[in-house]
Design a protein around this nucleic acid. Structure first.
Lengths: 108, 108
DNA sequence: CCAGTATATGGCTATATGGCCATATAGTCA
DNA sequence: TGACTATATGGCCATATAGCCATATACTGG
């Protein structure tokens, strides 16, 4: 149980460690979307969004299927949404709570 | 529930998105440790380890208390350990499983 | 105080990242 | 086929990151 593949783990976490990509994930957590929708939502260059999606695909966090002229992306690993709750609770703790137990479903 | 602080979330995730820091977290998840123990475990320069700990401290993931000559670090946010399980399940899926539901405690 | 040990900080270099623009690719529809 | 739209890729630049070495700081024990 100790032989984690830290390199792979870090790859996944690096893919998540970006504000724009977090927004993409949050969006895809609600409903699949095409690149153009994500591009409009983020207000970034389309090529930039495409690269973000490549990063997420490489980490096996999202996948896209073509439908007609569009490619619809969806979240493959919904568990990453819990990362956001945990991440949020980390600073929630800092800015108010006392000791921060629970809040995110970690095995203490 | 939509006004996430993505910047703060990304800060936390960036702090986790590094192989050496993941090893530190896994270690501290088992038991607190001083810098010198972590330095030996990682086989990196002591200054490098100290900087990693600063990153983790800044993200409120760990904190250290001095005891005599040593500073003992402990994990403040044990929920981050569940990140590792989720991250692992993301590639476990790739390398075998079919659809990857559950495995990590996300709210699907 | 001084010497010794543990930790932190500053300076440096090599590499990675995120953004843009320009362009290439892949599909649709006449 | 050719015009059009959606997405991906390559090139570039500015900034961030991880590592090292050297040095500073903080504490302990004589």
């Amino acid at each position: 149980m100790d032989n984690r593949d830290y390199e792979r783990d870090a790859l996944v976490l690096r893919a998540l460690a970006n504000e724009s990509r977090l927004k993409i994930i949050e969006r895809l957590g609600r409903e699949q979307a095409c690149v153009c929708e994500l591009t409009e939502m983020l207000g970034l260059d389309q090529s930039t969004v495409s690269k973000h999606l490549t990063v997420l695909k490489t980490a096996d966090i999202v996948s896209g299927v073509r439908r007609g002229n569009h490619i619809y992306y969806r979240l493959l690993a919904p568990c990453v949404l819990s990362f956001l709750n945990c991440a949020a609770s980390v600073h929630a703790k800092k800015d108010g709570d006392r000791e921060h137990q629970g809040e995110c479903n970690g095995q203490t």
